[in-house]
Design a protein around this nucleic acid. Structure first.
Length: 294
DNA sequence: ACAACTACGAGTGGTCGCCT
DNA sequence: AGGCGACCACTCGTAGTTGT
């Protein structure tokens, strides 16, 4: 299996045409045909179903597509890593969800940069499962996640626990001492899933059949909805308080029973990577940074 | 009839290993 | 080092099919 064959495969799958794939790869069509044939021969299965007017992926082709993408992504990552080699004593690839970078990790990583200028950092954003995949593929050295992966090849360290609070727009009219889940049912509620424990609490507090008005998968989106006066939602307390102090939103009194669960933040490391000095330094720094206030 | 498409075969040029 | 053959990937020309 050759990289050129995978590139041809992805291009044909994308353009649904051997001719157009050949054009975009600056080849002639028969070359693309040959590459696909060689790939099909190597895999022992047809990847495309050819008809006279169009082509389509076979079930095997559809199955193979994400693997081909990952192989090419690995190739690009390895080239980038080699390009960066020599620019610093060591480089660390650290992955985390967008919301953690924005509001939790940035100060910690900024401090680490100042302390260890010899270590080059590559910061990657993505959903928890994407970061986990990169850790397992060796494309990330460390991940900082809300949802810990359970995999024998990964070590999970609890870094800290975030609190949640209810937040609404800055001009939210508050006419009572504290809001209840019953009050929230009648408000435009914006939902962000904060993990298994939160979802269990949410179902217990609001009932299994409560359907939030809007559901988002990024804290930045949730913030935008709240700040523009479109609704209320559960935010990380540290973020909400900082924004409330700047007058950008309002932290709403909400004392449910049972109380809102905490949101743990985990450091995830591939077990085989623990020997690196830079990674040990980052691990120790994060543990100290996040536990100093306790 | 024509256009658009894929497949195939012949020819070409580059690379590699072997031998002298 | 240089000649030779095998192999591979490529280009080009062409055939066959089908929709408009």
């Amino acid at each position: 299996m050759e990289i050129s064959q995978l590139e041809a495969f992805l291009q044909v799958a994308k353009t649904k045409s051997f001719t157009r794939a050949a054009e975009s790869l600056h080849l002639v069509q028969s070359t693309v045909t040959t590459r696909i044939q060689m790939l099909e021969k190597a895999l022992g299965k047809p990847l495309f179903r050819r008809t006279s007017r169009h082509i389509e992926l076979t079930p095997a082709g559809k199955h193979f597509l994400p693997y081909a993408r990952r192989i090419l992504e690995l190739k690009r990552e390895s080239e980038k890593a080699l390009q960066m080699e020599g620019m610093a004593e060591e480089q660390l690839f650290v992955g985390s969800p967008h919301s953690l970078w924005d509001y939790i990790l940035f100060p910690a990583v900024k401090k680490f940069r100042r302390k260890h200028p010899e270590i080059a950092l590559r910061l990657i954003t993505g959903h928890s499962d994407e970061i986990t995949e990169k850790l397992l593929d060796g494309l990330a050295d460390a991940g900082i996640l809300y949802i810990p992966p359970y995999h024998p090849g990964l070590e999970v360290i609890r870094l800290r626990e975030e609190s949640l609070c209810l937040a609404g727009p800055a001009d939210f009219p508050l006419d009572k001492e504290a809001l209840t889940p019953e009050d929230l049912r009648s408000l435009p509620f914006i939902h962000l899933g904060w993990g298994t424990e939160f979802e269990q609490w949410f179902k217990a507090a609001f009932g299994r059949h409560f359907l939030p008005l809007v559901e988002v998968d990024h804290m930045s989106l949730l913030l935008r909805w709240i700040r523009t006066g479109e609704g209320v939602g559960f935010l990380l307390q540290s973020v909400a308080e900082e924004m409330a102090a700047a007058g950008k939103l309002k932290v709403l009194p909400f004392r449910p029973d049972p109380p809102l669960p905490g949101i743990p933040v985990y450091l995830v490391l591939p077990k085989r990577k623990r020997s690196s000095d830079g990674l040990d330094a980052l691990t120790n720094h994060l543990l100290r940074f996040f536990n100093k206030g306790k």
